[in-house]
């Protein structure tokens, strides 16, 4: 049995519309010896309904944590929202006795109990803490020398610092470190740790798209050829909404947005088809040509 064995929490957004993220993650994780155990039962992490009902968010998250406890495995996710929520609720239930009692009261009605025996991790925590940079470096076959990218880590992996505290929220370094292992250069840009706007797009799309647009502007200004994300929702804003932003503001970006496993996969020598690069809305053909991959 592998020491890198996790329960794979896929979440809702990835199967709904960002399958290429899952495809590339499964391929690259296998190369790193990460074993994904499929869940037979799961539900939404709870985050989307938190603004309307914190209590509902908590029971939904707690139910997933209980399922992982029953299997005796730590959770791995590809989504910063899922990871952030499960991590936050796990910690609150472990630390706040009154809250745990209340939630366990609900859970007992469906034959479950929160015990606090597992952890929930985003895969970039797993890569840094469990896999380790050395093992990733050993997996690189075609370093992406000369490629300039910008990272967007996503709010729910960074803040509130009091809960997460594993990266500097004003100057996040973990994803940057991982990107540099691929041989690509990761550029700094203005307001780097700022939000993508996804959570309010259904409330006020004008404000949400202006947040996304501003980040795209700053990234272009820094001279990046591509952007790298680790969250399906952030990715939808920067990739899928990019042409809409271009039309709405009469501005051209043409900035490819790769999921980190796609970037890592290219550096491991996997082909663009294996990494489902063709499913990206903004074509990455220019960077593939520059890297002499196609």
């Amino acid at each position: 049995m592998s020491d890198l064995r996790y329960l794979f929490f896929i979440g809702c957004t990835i199967p709904y519309r960002v399958t290429n993220y899952e495809v590339s993650a499964r391929k690259t994780f296998a190369k790193l010896g990460i074993e994904l155990v499929e869940m037979s039962d799961f539900n939404c992490c709870g985050l989307p309904v938190d603004p309307a009902s914190h209590e509902m968010m908590m029971v939904l998250a707690a139910r997933n944590l209980c399922l992982a406890e029953q299997q005796g495995l730590d959770i791995i996710t590809l989504c910063t929202g899922c990871a952030g929520t499960l991590r936050k609720v796990n910690r609150a239930l472990k630390e706040e006795k009154e809250l745990r009692n209340r939630v366990n009261e609900y859970l007992s009605k469906v034959g479950m109990e929160f015990k606090g025996t597992i952890e929930a991790k985003h895969f970039i925590h797993v890569l840094k803490e469990d896999v380790g940079f050395d093992r990733i470096k050993d997996s690189i076959r075609k370093p992406l020398a000369g490629l300039k990218v910008a990272e967007h880590c996503g709010c729910h992996l960074l803040r509130p610092t009091k809960i997460f505290g594993w990266d500097d929220p004003e100057n996040p370094e973990v994803l940057k470190g991982l990107i540099e292992l691929t041989g690509a250069e990761c550029l700094d840009y203005m307001d780097e740790p700022e939000c993508c706007g996804y959570t309010i797009i259904a409330i006020d799309d004008k404000v949400a798209l202006q947040l996304t647009r501003e980040k795209l502007q700053h990234i272009k200004m820094a001279g990046a050829q591509a952007m790298v994300t680790v969250c399906p929702s952030c990715h939808l804003m920067f990739d899928m909404q990019q042409s809409r932003i271009e039309r709405a503001f009469n501005e051209k970006f043409e900035l490819p947005v790769l999921h980190f496993p796609q970037l890592l996969g290219l550096a491991m020598g996997l082909g663009p088809d294996e990494l489902a690069l063709g499913d990206l809305r903004v074509s990455p053909s220019k960077i593939l040509e520059a890297l002499k991959i196609v």
């Binding site: 896929i10 199967p15 039962d41 309904v49 009902s53 209590e55 509902m56 029971v59 609900y106």
Partner: peptide, 29 residues
């Protein structure tokens, strides 16, 4: 998903999920 060779999506045990939502006061939503 099947065409891409991905495993089938896990399904929630809805009896558990709906009960928890109701207990947490989510019915009004």
């Amino acid at each position: 998903r099947a065409e891409l060779g991905l495993p089938p999506l896990p399904k929630a045990n809805l009896d558990g999920v709906d009960k928890l939502i109701e207990l947490a006061g989510g019915r009004k939503l």
